[in-house]
Structures are given as C-alpha cells and as structure tokens.
C-alpha cells in the first residue's frame, strides 16, 4: 500500500533537512539556551546561598551586637558602682579628716588655754611675791626706825631659833 511505503525523495529531504536543522539549532539555539539556563540556575543558586550566608552573618552580627551591648551595660553599671563607692569613700574620708582636724584644733586650743592660764597664774604669783616683798620691806623700814622695836624683833627671832 502506498501509505506505508516510504518515499525515497521524502526520505532524502527529511534526512538532509533534519540534519541541517539539528546542526543549526544545536549551534545557534540549544547550546546558548542550555548554557543560559545553566548559568541562570547557577546564579540563582549562588544568590540564594549568598542570601542564606548573609542571613547567618546578620544573625552573628546581631548576637555579637547584643553581646557588646550587654558588656557595655555591665561596664556602665560597674563604673557607676565604682564611682558611687569612690564618692562615698571620699565623703567618708573628708568627714573623718574634718573630725580629726576639729578635735586636733580643739585639743590645741585647750592646750594653749592651759598654757596661758599657767603663765597668767605664774605672773600673778610673781606679782604677789614682789608685792609682798615690797610691802614687807616697807613695813620693816617703818618698824626698824625705833630701837625698841628692833630689840623686840631680834628677841622674837632668837626665840624662834631656840625653839627649833
């Protein structure tokens, strides 16, 4: 039957045309298309993995930031604590020093007052002695002006001596 008998001319044209089509399409269509697809798939893959990497990096950075922040916060707390401690000590020291100074000054003042008192007493004593001597001199001068009084005095001294 005609239908199932391959026609020689058509076989020839089909073979020639198909080989040309295969060659040209391979060279100018399939190769560039397949390469482009491969490249695009590779670039998408790369982009995805890069995004994943970036995400991980971001997470790392965030964690690091948080760590730094926590450290900074701790540092701040420490500094604040230290500062307040230092302040307290300073105030305490100042207070102690002031107290000490005060008591020292009071002691000094007390000493000075004592010294002044002693000096004043000494002076008073000296003055009283001088005055007594003066008074006694004057009295003696008046008494010894008459002979009898001199005799009586001498007699008194003598008695005193005998009694000793």
């Amino acid at each position: 039957m005609d239908l199932v008998t391959p026609n020689f001319g058509l076989i020839f044209w089909q073979l020639v045309t198909f080989l040309i089509v295969l060659f040209l399409l391979t060279k100018f269509a399939w190769k560039p298309i397949m390469n482009a697809l491969r490249e695009r798939e590779a670039s998408i893959e790369n982009a995805l993995s890069a995004a994943e990497k970036a995400k991980l990096e971001m997470q790392g950075l965030k964690a690091e930031n948080e760590k730094l922040l926590a450290e900074a916060r701790m540092e701040r707390d420490k500094i604040l604590k230290e500062a307040s401690e230092a302040g307290n000590t300073l105030v305490e020291n100042a207070r102690n020093k002031a107290n000490e100074e005060g008591s020292r000054m009071i002691a000094q003042a007390r000493e000075a007052i004592e010294n002044e008192k002693l000096a004043a007493i000494t002076e008073v004593k000296n003055m009283a002695a001088a005055l007594s001597v003066d008074i006694a001199e004057r009295i003696l001068r008046k008494e010894l002006s008459d002979k009898q009084a001199q005799q009586e005095l001498a007699q008194d001294y003598l008695r005193e001596v005998t009694l000793n």
Binding site: G9, F12, Q14, T17, V21, L25, F28, A29, W30, I33
Partner: peptide, 25 residues
C-alpha cells in the same frame, strides 16, 4: 527528489523552528 507538499511543509516548519528558537536564543 521533488519538493512535494510534505517537503514544502517541512521547510515551513523548519523556518518556523529557526525563527522561534533563534529569537529565543
């Protein structure tokens, strides 16, 4: 070796294939 209706039709399809896939490339 005549260019029969089938051969001519094949040429049309080949032109179409070239047009489509070269422009896609």
């Amino acid at each position: 070796f005549s260019i029969t209706k089938n051969v001519a039709s094949m040429f049309v399809s080949v032109a179409l294939l070239f047009f489509v896939f070269f422009s896609i490339a």
